[in-house]
Design a protein around this nucleic acid. Structure first.
Lengths: 329, 329
DNA sequence: CTGAAAGCGCTTACAG
DNA sequence: CTGAAAGCGCTTACAG
């Protein structure tokens, strides 16, 4: 059987209260008593039951995190940001995904509802939003990381999609490009509208192609543009995966980058350093967003009221060879 | 205050026992009684406390996972495999990292020791091995996913590193390559020794360069080989990141791939499809390894004894353009 | 400095 | 079909 605090107490010849005190270094305990208790703990291999601790203390010291998928290229950084912050505060992190349709949602519901955690960080909720709203109303602290939609009812962390698009446009304009193509993500996403709006506010264009954030959509878009004889001197893709497809299709068609066409992506995922040529892109502060969301949640748990408006973390243009600075000669 | 099972019982005019029964659909409950209870639950927004449930039931229905880093390129797949399996079994997943040296280990110790979970999946334990051994001896079920070391005392999941290396060599040999270079990872890793051994067992070579799994190490190795005038017609890199560096250095030096030099990597991370040219590589069944490890842990928790010997999942050669099949003409 | 006792929110024999 | 009561393993006033 599992060894409990009672076993330790008996073996050490003290009360459970005293054992609890030395474990939590709370209250005065005689030095030699404490030493003896610690010895017994080590000898018996005692570890407290977090369930019991949480129950007695009224808090689990655990936060939950709900993500749509763990294999998205920027998810690792985001997760690392959350985990680091949470662990530094001596909290645990309970991870959930909801990428399997209705079944996952149901499972999430039952698991999440078990209230194994004190608060929740959610990344781009899709079909779970209704449920989240309900949980939030019932008192569960929630922080969102979501560029795709606007959710004024939740505290959230976002990045500067509009300005990010604008920075890409300024960079291309300053390099002398005048005929840009924009390849977007799915148009119902808020970030997609913002990125496009920011871009065209600086560098207007009628060459806006609807994509879907896949490598294939970048490839297809370029192939069709070339086939139709459309003239363009640059591409702004709404994410790096799409930009990778753009690079590939251009190369296949014998176009040079950046000579014939300059290419700018969005995200700065790890791959983007290694494309050919390396990709100029609008960096999302992914890890920082994770850290910030976690910190907001933790301080909310600590009693600080959550900010009323979304916390905005700036994007940053990372210039590499696919769209170098200045005019290409 | 939080609403408890007692509140529900009072409001519904039944006992806590009855409420518990309808929640867990256990034992006979009158239909109309159950309906009323469910109504009250919904109305009050009641959610059970998992801490209390776990305490009463003697199990947390949660497994832990300890990883060195979340940003490694194949970690997403692995994690997804574990999470999917764990969630399908209605367990929760508590995530820990230990990438911050002694401090993390200590934190991990205290958190892990809190026994918030019934079992643990560990990916490449580094400095935590002693502690894990102790926990394991004290009765915590643990499953390892670790190619780097051999740990006969733990149940584990591994892949076929030796055969993977051999398959790369066979592929190059069959394509007529006779002067391969091997760029390894750090030599104290078991997987590194196995990959090299497998490779040279098929295609012996004295051109084995010590690398460290970074893109830079691939680049430097190629630059030095070229500078020294060493002749070679192919490269087997111990991971895809290194192979990406190899491709880059070759291109910079004006060598064609696969014309002058064929390149084979190891891992098949998402990036490898998008390198120039797309990378031929030895695929690790990363997601499957995660699934398998989780399944082993869960069935162990269910009472099935863990397998005595490591469970081996086969690698698979993925042929792309950096090393196409057959002889290059 | 130390301990007895109540309480955290559930589940589960046991009894009816 | 339903409920009273004990128990899960801790923490925390309260008393000494």
């Amino acid at each position: 059987m599992r060894v409990t605090i009672a076993d330790v107490a008996r073996e050490a010849g003290v009360s459970k209260t005293t054992v609890s005190r030395v474990i939590n270094t709370k209250g005065e305990v005689d030095g030699s008593t404490a030493a003896r208790v610690r010895e017994v703990i080590a000898q018996l291999g005692y570890v407290p039951s977090s369930g019991a601790v949480g129950l007695a203390r009224g808090s689990s010291r655990t936060v939950g995190m709900l993500v749509p998928s763990l294999t998205w290229p920027w998810m690792g950084e985001l997760l690392q940001g959350v985990v680091d912050t949470v662990e530094a505060a001596d909290y645990g992190l309970l991870l959930f995904t909801c990428n399997r349709g209705a079944e996952s949602v149901e499972r999430f519901t039952s698991q999440v509802s078990a209230r194994a955690f004190d608060g929740l960080v959610v990344v781009e909720p899709e079909n779970t939003l209704d449920h989240l709203t309900e949980l939030h109303r019932d008192g569960l602290p929630i922080v969102l990381i979501d560029d795709r939609g606007h959710h004024p009812e939740f505290p959230s962390v976002v990045t500067t999609n509009h300005e990010g698009g604008a920075s890409a446009a300024r960079h291309l304009r300053d390099a002398g490009r005048t005929r840009p193509v924009v390849i977007t993500g799915p148009e119902h996403f808020g970030c997609v509208r913002d990125r496009t709006a920011g871009f065209v506010s600086v560098l207007p264009t009628d060459l806006v192609v609807l994509g879907d954030f896949t490598e294939r959509s970048g490839r297809l878009a370029v192939e069709q543009l070339l086939a139709s004889g459309t003239e363009f001197d640059s591409v702004f893709a709404h994410n790096d995966i799409t930009a990778a497809g753009v690079l590939r299709a251009l190369r296949a068609a014998g176009k040079t980058v950046p000579g014939d066409i300059a290419v700018v992506g969005f995200d700065d995922i790890p791959m983007s350093e290694h494309t050919e040529p390396p990709l100029t892109t609008v960096r999302q502060p992914t890890r920082q967003m994770g850290e910030t969301a976690a910190r907001m949640l933790l301080s909310h748990l600590g009693g600080t009221p959550a900010p009323e408006t979304p916390v905005v973390l700036p994007t940053e243009l990372v210039v590499r060879h696919s769209a170098p600075p200045g005019r290409v000669t």
